[in-house]
Nucleic acid binder design. Structure first.
Length: 460
DNA sequence: TGAAATGTTGGGGCG
DNA sequence: ACGCCCCAACATTTC
């Protein structure tokens, strides 16, 4: 008897076995599966690549428990897939649909390869709660504002319940390149469980607080598809509605699911307006008088702007590849508005340094901060880094952790050390301009400059 | 998912 | 007693 021809399950940003429609559909056929990951030649930031290694190792381990093994290949996807189809005679390729501007051309190329080899190419959803074609205005146009988008999401059918890991899947192996595992990773489920059990009830109130730890930290897991948004949606919703759920859980769930929907909204924007990767969604912003001050950007990158909350955030980014959402907004506002650096420069910088670097979320949120998005923060909304620090890091725990040279300074002076009395600075061992910099730009001056720059958008 | 400027109110000190 | 000023505290408007 001839062995049945395998189906290649081409993993991309869907590095999981649970709730994986493309994998489930392949497994249902009963034919053996060939799990594949292609290390592409596209540029991935160093932080993301580091995380990817852990994700791939975890996926390979999970496959191993089912008797499978992840095949790793390097190169351009159509070429790798063509070679593998020839090697194995596979009958089909299954993949999860993706939404970056280049994915359409890529999938066309893969489709051509499949046709040439007599194989089927199937893409299925799984990355988003709602496909970009399914949430449209009455005129069939994409939503440009989040609020109506979210209203329609809530009115729509509840997102699909998560699929189980396929049972009794059979696997074949193919020659694979080596994955040097740099880090050992715990179970990926643990993160979600602890969030919904212990933090959800304080999420709505505490998610912006930098001295508490109530955010989900799911972003890199979601980016690499170790968990699906459907899994998160249902875990959060059921944790909140469970009998005996702690007070505040419902408000927390509501706030969290809204954030999850912002992720979908970013993807929908990316799919419908692919130029937003590099171009402002509001065309008038193409003539914005940016400064592109390389020296100021360097000061930010080195965590020496002189504003403790800003410097703490960038130092956390360097050390961990992560920043909580609140400080992302603070530093983004500082870079775009205080320093007038083009958001495109900064978006690229974030893509290079964040472990959760995600094109859709990243570009959409930078445009939100810059004011150039279709649904964006008003351009006159300029964060005061001192007030933000006092509000969201009242005792200074966050600043002390990441800017230890200010550690002995009293909370009252921590967010504006240049205003501290000389005695307080001396006692804390702080010498402004030496052990810690003075602000590279005066807040009031920068604010006035930004408002003037944004005013040019209206006048000409 | 701002901040600053400006306006309003009301209590208390004071002549 | 009364009007006046000062200034928090809060509200509204503006950027």
């Amino acid at each position: 008897m001839v062995a049945p021809l395998p189906i290649i399950v081409w993993f991309r940003l869907d590095l999981r076995l649970t709730d994986h429609p493309a994998l489930a559909a392949a497994a249902e056929t009963g034919t053996p599966l060939l799990p594949l990951y292609i290390l592409g030649r596209w540029r991935m930031g160093g932080a993301s690549r580091w995380w990817l290694h852990g994700s791939l190792a975890a996926l390979d381990k999970d496959l191993g428990r089912m008797g499978g093994r992840l095949c790793l290949r390097q190169g351009s996807a159509p070429e790798v897939l063509a070679a593998l189809l020839a090697e194995t005679g596979a009958s089909a390729i299954h993949a999860t649909r993706d939404y970056a501007p280049w994915d359409e051309a890529l999938e066309q190329a893969v489709l051509a390869v499949c046709k040439a080899n007599g194989a089927e190419f199937r893409t299925l959803g799984g990355r988003l709660l709602f496909e970009p074609e399914s949430i449209l205005t009455k005129e069939g146009k994409p939503y440009r504002l989040f609020a109506p988008f979210w209203r329609v999401c809530l009115a729509a059918k509840t997102p699909r319940a998560p699929l189980r890991v396929p049972k009794r899947a059979k696997f074949v192996e193919a020659e694979s390149e080596r994955l040097d595992v740099w880090a050992a990773w715990g179970s990926r489920g643990a993160r979600l469980v602890s969030f919904t059990d212990f933090h959800l009830s304080s999420y709505a109130e505490g998610r912006s607080r930098l001295d508490l730890n109530v955010t989900s930290r799911l972003s890199p897991h979601l980016h690499f598809g170790e968990v699906s948004p459907n899994q998160v949606w249902h875990a959060v919703a059921s944790a909140a509605s469970r009998a005996g759920a702690p007070r505040g859980a419902e408000a927390g769930a509501e706030a969290y699911l809204r954030e999850l929907a912002w992720r979908d909204f970013s993807y929908h924007l990316l799919k419908h307006f692919p130029a937003m990767v590099s171009e402002p969604l509001r065309p008038e912003f193409t003539s914005f008088p940016w400064c592109d001050d390389a020296q100021a950007l360097a000061a930010w990158r080195e965590g020496r702007t002189g504003y403790p909350i800003v410097d703490a955030a960038v130092r956390e980014l360097w050390q961990t590849g992560f920043m909580p959402n609140r400080v992302r907004m603070i530093v983004a506002s500082f870079l775009v508005k205080h320093l007038l650096i083009p958001w495109q420069t900064l978006a690229q910088w974030f893509l290079d340094t964040l472990v959760d670097a995600d094109l859709a979320n990243n570009q959409a949120n930078w445009q939100w901060v810059a004011g150039s998005g279709t649904d964006a923060a008003p351009c006159f909304r300029i964060f005061n880094p001192v007030l933000q620090g006092e509000k969201f890091d009242p005792d200074g725990a966050y600043v002390r952790r990441w800017v230890p040279e200010l550690g002995a300074l009293a909370a009252a002076h921590l967010h504006a050390p240049w205003q501290a009395p000389d005695l307080a600075l001396t006692q804390a061992g702080v010498t402004l301009g030496q052990s810690y910099p003075r602000p590279i730009i005066d807040h009031a001056t920068a604010r006035a400059r930004a408002l003037a720059a944004f005013a040019t958008l209206r006048n000409g």
